[in-house]
């Protein structure tokens, strides 16, 4: 039994120690906003915040979490930065199929929390681990800059 702090709420889950957080969120807690893309931390679709940092939940064993707080796409908009990022995403009409965008938004929000005025190089560095097969990178970059100056 693990006790997890997810989006400000404590959740008890009875799952194997090596079960990645991704499947705990999706299949045990029914929080499907966090997506499965690759399972090997190559695509970033499963990105959530752990103690404020963007992590890939597909390779994050539930036993490695401890009491660090988890924030997912379902609640990232509760923070001022997350709300700004979501707003910029809508404003720039970033989304196409949208499947990767939960992860993109989580990565972008973590970036802006750490680096409020990122350069293009900062964006490259923080966002190149998040794949978008629809190819929305041009607008993601614009939206991050927009959120930074909002």
């Amino acid at each position: 039994m693990f006790s997890l702090s997810i989006n400000g709420q404590t959740q008890q889950v009875d799952v194997p120690a090596d079960m990645p957080l991704l499947w705990v969120l999706r299949d045990v807690l029914g929080m499907t906003g966090t997506k499965f893309g690759c399972g090997i931390a190559q695509c970033g679709a499963c990105t959530v915040h752990l103690g404020g940092a963007a992590v890939r939940s597909c390779l994050l064993p539930v036993s490695g979490i401890g009491d660090q707080p988890i924030v997912t796409i379902e609640a990232v908009g509760d923070s001022p930065t997350g709300a700004k990022v979501q707003h910029a995403w809508l404003d720039k009409e970033v989304v196409q199929c949208g499947y990767c965008q939960s992860g993109q938004i989580m990565s972008a929000t973590a970036l802006l929390n750490q680096t409020p005025k990122p350069t293009d190089a900062d964006i490259d560095s923080a966002m190149s681990g998040n794949i978008c097969r629809c190819g929305t990178y041009v607008r993601i970059r614009e939206a991050i800059h927009a959120a930074a100056s909002a």
Partner: peptide, 12 residues
């Protein structure tokens, strides 16, 4: 994706 741009490690 795993190691962070700094090499500090992401989730593990």
């Amino acid at each position: 994706g795993c190691h962070l741009p700094t090499g500090a490690g992401r989730q593990s």
